[in-house]
């Protein structure tokens, strides 16, 4: 027994320098992630600022029951899911297509210029991006002026419930597709060139090569990114929606994140209830992530982390 302890002590002493390096990080994660995680206890309490998180009276599952009896919360859940499944459909494949196209492009120099254009919006904040977009799509903006000059009717893009969500997907693609495509381009550049040579010998056209060689070869990358995206199914991109949202599209745009923000910082706050909504969101995310990972493994893929 003492020998084992000695060996453990020895191993720890050997790695003392590495522990030293870990300390700031451990403190950071403890203070900003794990203490707040214990604060999730709030979800089961009626918060009283005077008594603090731990002194506040417990209410059991009442806050969670309230989620499903509050129409606004239920509608926020529905909007979140609808928007995010649509994002998987309308946003997830776009960077893959872009990567395939860039890969097919002739001319190294032009490729670089184009990629610069596609990528730069990623580094701008949504504050900047939404201002640019609102300016562009406003009633007096460029798009509508062009429409009007061509004799068409001005379209109120920004406050039209039917157009709000497509505008979300479209503008998100404008901002992020270039950045997201880099990882696919990197994966494509790692493909063995002899595969293409063989395909060319067999008389495969470029489209056939993209379909039968390139896509299967980057399947692993696609699956990994897909799982990660599914694990964020309850996060709909708070900032984008928060900035682009306005009163006339609230019915289709209020998601869980904006809902939590509004009930906590605008109305009379009920911290217990807000925390419960947030926790509900996090748990669903985690379940979806693990679920997607299991499904992929069952289907013979390698899933996350090996």
């Amino acid at each position: 027994m003492t020998k084992r302890w000695q060996r453990l002590g020895n191993a720890i002493w050997q790695a003392r320098f590495l522990y030293l390096l870990l300390i700031p990080g451990i403190v950071y994660y403890a203070v900003f992630y794990y203490v707040p995680m214990s604060g999730l206890a709030l979800a089961f309490k009626k918060y009283n600022a005077r008594l603090g998180i731990w002194g506040s009276p417990s209410v059991g599952w009442a806050n969670f029951q309230r989620i499903f009896t509050t129409p606004a919360a239920v509608s926020a859940i529905r909007n979140t899911l609808e928007i995010n499944f649509s994002r998987l459909l309308f946003q997830f494949p776009v960077p893959i297509l872009l990567a395939l196209l860039i890969n097919e492009m002739r001319g190294t120099k032009w490729k670089r210029v184009y990629q610069t254009v596609y990528t730069f919006p990623h580094f701008l904040s949504w504050v900047v991006m939404s201002a640019i977009i609102s300016n562009f799509f406003a009633n007096g903006g460029m798009i509508n002026t062009i429409i009007a000059n061509m004799g068409g009717e001005r379209i109120n893009f920004l406050s039209n419930s039917a157009l709000f969500r497509p505008l979300l997907y479209f503008t998100h693609n404008l901002k992020e597709m270039g950045w997201s495509s880099i990882i696919y381009i990197a994966a494509i550049s790692a493909i063995d060139p002899t595969l293409y040579e063989a395909a060319t010998m067999d008389g495969a056209s470029r489209l056939q090569q993209a379909w039968h060689v390139t896509l299967p070869c980057i399947r692993g990358t696609i699956i990994t990114l897909f799982i990660l995206q599914v694990g964020r199914i309850m996060n709909s991109g708070f900032e984008q929606i928060f900035y682009m949202q306005n009163a006339s599209v609230k019915g289709v745009s209020e998601i869980l994140d904006t809902y939590i923000y509004n009930i906590t910082f605008k109305a009379v706050p009920s911290y217990g209830f807000s925390t419960a909504v947030g926790m509900f969101k996090s748990v669903i995310n985690l379940v979806m992530l693990v679920g997607a990972n299991v499904v992929v493994r069952r289907m013979g893929g390698s899933g996350l982390m090996g």
């Binding site: 214990s38 604060g39 694990g231 911290y271 925390t275 969101k281 996090s282």
Partner: peptide, 15 residues
Amino acid sequence: FTMFFSGGMIPTYLQ
């Protein structure tokens, strides 16, 4: 783990 699960806005704010 913190990449996939966190306390969320209110507990972090209170911290």
